[in-house]
């Protein structure tokens, strides 16, 4: 068993004699990156944070965290569906966030459900929308990208119907998300809610292991007796519940709710997830990746804004960054495979 034996399925050229003396430290560093896929984005985010602090003397943590929160939450909400594999992705996260904001502004706030009571109500609503999306995909055996694109249009339409023009809701409890809750920055609290949901479900229950297994190889999971369909539906439901929190932060930040934000986070959330090192084929990564990716993108936006770089270049830089992140991840993953 211990003799070198090339797996029959992958004929690779003979790697030749390996001199371990020089390659060992580099290999271990690379395999560290391969094992902790968020490290690239985290390193990038830290470097950008330093650059921001140097260039912006009054870089206030509270307001920055609040501004980061919507993108961070949108990215985290995208994670479960992507991890569930077989093309899983949820393009309807962004309009769902807006739906949550609008439901709050036009329905709950007027009837006096203004405070934090609204939070669980809207999270359950988000989870139900996510469940519907998941059921369409699983029961209908439809392509996730098509179903969630359809949901994107439907929810955008519902958003417009709910509030054809921006609705102002100032002075509500939600404003705390943009400020502080006691000594704690409100943005941090907002980010902590999806993180808590994620950790509770994936760490304290068997669901986390099942989600990774289904995303990794759904045929194996299915024949081993894992309820693959239920795992997937629950992934979309989790994403929906997380997205609902994001909508409330939007209200806190802008004191208005408008349908115009429906598509604001769709692509950038997926960019954050990919930058964070989550493989889009599923099975890998976690919420830390999404947070690191979102932080990197947000801090880049912020830095380029301060340096007065034109918007045109911003987009190009996003693209270039994304490609380098994916390349980096691929190289690290290859190293992990070769370093068996």
């Amino acid at each position: 068993m211990s003799t070198t034996n090339h797996p029959a399925l992958t004929p690779v050229p003979d790697p030749g004699p390996q001199t371990t003396a020089t390659t060992a430290p580099r290999r271990s560093l690379r395999s560290l990156f391969a094992r902790h896929t968020y490290l690239f984005a985290l390193g990038l985010a830290l470097a950008l944070l330093v650059a921001n602090l140097v260039n912006q003397p009054n870089f206030g943590a509270t307001s920055q965290l609040a501004n980061l929160a919507p993108l961070g939450i949108a990215a985290m909400a995208s994670v479960p569906s992507i991890m569930s594999g077989r093309g899983g992705i949820d393009l309807s996260i962004s309009p769902l966030m807006t739906l949550s904001a609008l439901l709050y502004a036009t329905q709950l706030h007027p009837i006096g459900l203004g405070g934090y009571v609204a939070l669980p109500v809207l999270m359950v609503t988000g989870a139900l929308v996510g469940t519907l999306t998941g059921l369409l995909i699983v029961v209908g055996r439809l392509q996730p990208i098509v179903v969630t694109l359809a949901m994107f249009f439907v929810l955008t339409g519902v958003d417009l119907k709910l509030a054809p023009s921006p609705t102002t809701v100032s002075g509500t409890w939600m404003a705390n998300f943009a400020g502080s809750m006691g000594p704690v920055p409100g943005g941090l609290v907002a980010l902590a809610i999806p993180v808590a949901v994620w950790l509770l479900i994936t760490r304290l229950t068997t669901y986390g292991s099942l989600l990774r297994s289904v995303g990794g190889n759904d045929v194996t999971a299915f024949t081993s007796g894992v309820p693959v369909g239920a795992v997937r539906v629950l992934a979309y439901a989790m994403g929906g519940a997380m997205a609902a929190v994001g909508g409330l932060v939007l209200i806190g930040l802008a004191s208005t709710a408008e349908a115009g934000t429906s598509s604001a986070y769709t692509l950038i959330a997926i960019a954050a997830v990919a930058l964070g090192g989550i493989p889009l084929q599923g099975g890998g990564g976690g919420i830390a990746n999404a947070l690191a990716g979102a932080a990197a993108i947000y801090l880049l936006q912020s830095l380029l804004g301060v340096l007065q770089v034109s918007q045109t270049w911003l987009q190009v830089i996003y693209g270039a960054l994304l490609i380098s992140a994916v390349l980096f991840g691929a190289i690290a993953a290859r190293e992990l495979k070769a370093g068996r």
Binding site: R203, T205, A221
Partner: peptide
């Protein structure tokens, strides 16, 4: 040969033994 390549050997050996939302044993 059916296995989830990115999960550990141990996870693969006990795959399917758990319910959907049970406390992690």
């Amino acid at each position: 040969v059916l296995g989830v390549e990115n999960r550990t050997v141990l996870d693969n050996l006990w795959l399917g033994a758990d319910g959907l939302l049970r406390p992690v044993s």
